[in-house]
């Protein structure tokens, strides 16, 4: 599948040293379109929408903020730490600026650990971009499925 010019521009901004030192692509050698399509297929297989996953990560972040920077247990299952850094990061698609932060969720049930930021939530929701393989901030669909499903109460988020 051919990348659009917008995707090519976003892809170039995702390289290390442009927006963040590590970039958004990790070890992934695939094109942006290929990364997104593969993750869209995987998310469909796990029967999770990007919007639902993003809302759930937002819910964990909001709940984790009660820890005031220290780890806190959410829903008797997720240990969430919300850390903040100075400044803002622009989305590689240039459709917004997001507070620089780092949310760590450790799921005591599935043993999945995910690290994400406000920008990660936005890219997941708006662009279906889970970030490249080999990156600490990648939101792998399989991990998202384990984190979200696995007998989680239906009432949240």
């Amino acid at each position: 599948m051919k990348n659009t010019q917008t995707e090519l521009d976003a892809y170039n901004r995702m390289k290390p040293g442009i927006i963040t030192a590590a970039g958004f692509l990790g070890d992934d050698l695939r094109t942006l379109r290929d990364i997104i399509e593969a993750d869209e297929e995987a998310m469909a297989q796990y029967n999770i929408t990007f919007e639902y996953a993003a809302d759930f990560l937002e819910f964990l972040k909001a709940s984790g903020q009660a820890g005031l920077g220290e780890p806190i247990t959410v829903e008797s299952r997720y240990i969430v730490t919300v850390g903040d850094a100075r400044g803002k990061l622009p989305c590689p698609w240039q459709d917004g600026l997001y507070h620089k932060n780092s949310i760590t969720v450790s799921d005591t049930k599935s043993r999945v650990i995910l690290i994400y930021s406000d920008l990660s939530i936005h890219m997941l929701k708006a662009h279906h971009f889970c970030q490249g393989k080999g990156l600490a901030f990648r939101l792998d669909p399989q991990d998202l499925a384990k984190l979200i499903k696995n007998d989680r109460p239906q009432s949240t988020p």
């Binding site: 040293g17 442009i18 927006i19 963040t20 030192a21 850094a85 100075r86 400044g87 803002k88 990061l89 622009p90 620089k100």
Partner: peptide, 11 residues
């Protein structure tokens, strides 16, 4: 400067 001149910290 917290970002080393990338224009992302505003410091």
């Amino acid at each position: 400067s917290a970002c080393g001149g990338r224009g992302s910290c505003g410091a």
